[in-house]
Amino acid sequence: MVKEPLNIIITGVGGQGNVLASQVVSAAAVQAGYRVAVGETFGVSQRGGSVMSHVRLSLNRPCGPLIPRGQAHVVAGFEPLETMRVLLDYASAETVVIMNNRPNYPLGCLSGEHRYPDPERVEEAVKKMTPRLHVLPATELAKEAGSPLAANMVMTGALAGSGLLPFGRECFISVIGSLFQGIVRDLNLQAFESGFRRMDG
């Protein structure tokens, strides 16, 4: 493993399924024989707040559930603004970012009190901080797979396909297969594959 521990942050907005994504990653990691610590910051975020999961993988040492500032190696951002927010605190120049390009507007922006920054500008700003940025239309890919709600599995697929994690596709497939049943399983697997293909090669 390149980093010890490997620090991953998965971030987005309540309702996007971030926590499920982080739990899929952690279950896959344990299956692959790694030690895992995940810290979830979600509060009452089912109601549209920011969500941030810290996922820490290690070969053999127990880690705390929170990543120190400036020490995230990988950031999977389900939403542009939230990706930016996390990077400001946790990125280093080497951080690799995988970002969904679909904005989710905070209430203050809908009401006209604040302005949601131009999505291209967010991309530019992220690149300024961390040049290793991969942008993908995860929500659109999820729609193609059957439901925009499966964007979390597209992003999980992208994470798995990035080659940044020390374990492969099979561990994820087996976890997703065991967590869901029937058409929900098919949808999630399809979404996962679509994100995986986007990043793989």
């Binding site: 109601r47 549209g48 920011s50 603004l81």
Partner: peptide
């Protein structure tokens, strides 16, 4: 680059 400040994300009814 973002001109404005980063907008907060308030909690909202679903």
């Amino acid at each position: 680059l973002l001109e404005d400040k980063m907008p907060d994300r308030e909690l909202a009814f679903c």
